[in-house]
């Protein structure tokens, strides 16, 4: 294909905007990683003293370790519950011809569509009303409500792509409902559930706006980071930040790799 001069100019111009966007989006990340390795103070950056020292310090910080533990526990439990709910809901909506199908979907998507502050404060007031004190359990509930939408969406898409005759064939060959789920439906859903779980974990790890309403005295990594940042600058923060970034990038890449072939196959 030939390109005229104007087209070239447009291309270059758009390319510059894109490059600028990349710069703006990635600068924070690069800046952070550098500062976590290289100490700096009012007098400038001390390039020569780069070290992993702050990473070691982090391991000794008990409140950080506790926050990491809470974050992991919360996300694993919330994602597990949400995955089971998503599978049941999706199967019910898609196959059983659920009454109020649209309404159910709308309710499931609400925590994801609405600003998180709504989900956060509504659950806060609800728990307060029924006398449940805030802690890990309430955070888990909030995260479940949030990530359910993600998992539901992915499971439903996969379920729709699967011919219903497979289920009929299984029953026809004498399988019980449970056997059909175990041998036919689950193997079909598994990839979508795993992708969804990774994505949901990434969301849960990072969740701040809902968690802050439901945490009480408990802290998670984002809350701990927020707290540390309010106090002021510490290289320790940058170390923690870099670890958090690394983990989230790894999860993002896993999701991307898993979703890509699926996109290629679905014509």
């Amino acid at each position: 294909m030939h390109k005229t001069n104007t087209e070239h100019l447009i291309d270059v111009f758009l390319g510059l905007i894109t490059a600028g966007t990349f710069f703006v989006l990635y600068m924070p990340i690069v800046v952070n990683s550098i500062f976590s390795l290289v100490p700096s103070d009012r007098n400038g950056i001390h390039w020569g003293e780069a070290s992993f020292e702050w990473y070691w310090r982090l391991l000794e910080n008990e409140s950080v370790i506790a926050a990491i533990k809470t974050t992991l526990i919360v996300s694993v439990i919330a994602v597990a519950i949400a995955a089971i709910l998503a599978i049941i809901l999706a199967i019910y909506v898609e196959w059983e011809g659920a009454v109020f199908q649209r309404t159910i979907e709308l309710v499931v998507y609400t925590p994801f569509l609405m600003p998180p502050i709504i989900t956060g404060l509504s659950l806060l007031m609800f728990f307060d009303r029924i006398g449940i004190s805030r802690g890990e359990a309430t955070i888990i509930v909030g995260h479940t409500a949030l990530v359910l939408a993600v998992l539901y969406r992915l499971v439903l898409t996969r379920l729709r792509a699967m011919p219903h005759t497979l289920v009929e064939a299984s029953a026809d060959l004498g399988a019980t409902r449970l056997q059909t789920f175990r041998y036919v439906v689950w193997p079909q859903l598994r990839p979508a559930v795993i992708t969804g779980a990774v994505l949901a974990m990434a969301v849960s790890f990072d969740e701040t706006l809902i968690t802050v309403f439901l945490a009480g005295d408990t802290t998670t990594i984002p809350l701990r980071l927020w707290g540390m940042m309010r106090v002021g600058f510490k290289p320790e923060i940058n170390a923690l930040v870099t670890i958090v970034l690394l983990v989230s990038i790894i999860m993002a890449v896993i999701t991307a790799i898993r979703i890509k072939p699926a996109e290629g196959n679905e014509e």
Partner: peptide, 25 residues
Amino acid sequence: YLLILLLILPLFMSYIVKIYTMRTI
């Protein structure tokens, strides 16, 4: 594919951290 991936990758990165770095910047 790579470019669009890189453009949405920041969505996965800690929200608090992004705000914090924006503050330092």
